[in-house]
Design a protein around this nucleic acid. Sequence first.
DNA 1: GTCATGACAAAGA
DNA 2: TTCTTTGCCATGA
Length: 119
Amino acid sequence: MNSASHNKADNPSFFELVYQVVRLIPKGRVTTYGAIAAYLGSKQSSRAVGYALNGAHFIKPKVPAQRVVNRNGMLSGKAHFETPTRMQELLEKEGVIVKDETIQNFSKHFWDPAKELSL
DNA sequence: GTCATGACAAAGA
DNA sequence: TTCTTTGCCATGA
């Protein structure tokens, strides 16, 4: 009976899983696309994660996409926010220092779902 | 059904 | 060290 079902994901769509994880990110913490992808089981799908967040603005409850950056700690997705400075503003408001579109002490603010949620 | 794009990541020169 | 190239997954035309 599996031949008929190509359900790659029996569960919620990959996108929803991404939204779930992002919403679990504590305030003042940040994570990377690869970390989320890895937590979902496919660390190579980091691109899909970013693509998912592309529609996060239309998802409710609100998804703190500002807490998700690339592995370099750079706000690569800031351009997709309401304003190019919105992402940085939100992060600084939560206590994260952002300099030159890059998070300072990134390792310190880094939050790994596969580690924190696994505990 | 194939081609091209994208808020990434890792490896090679 | 920085720059370039390749790979992966999902979406849109």
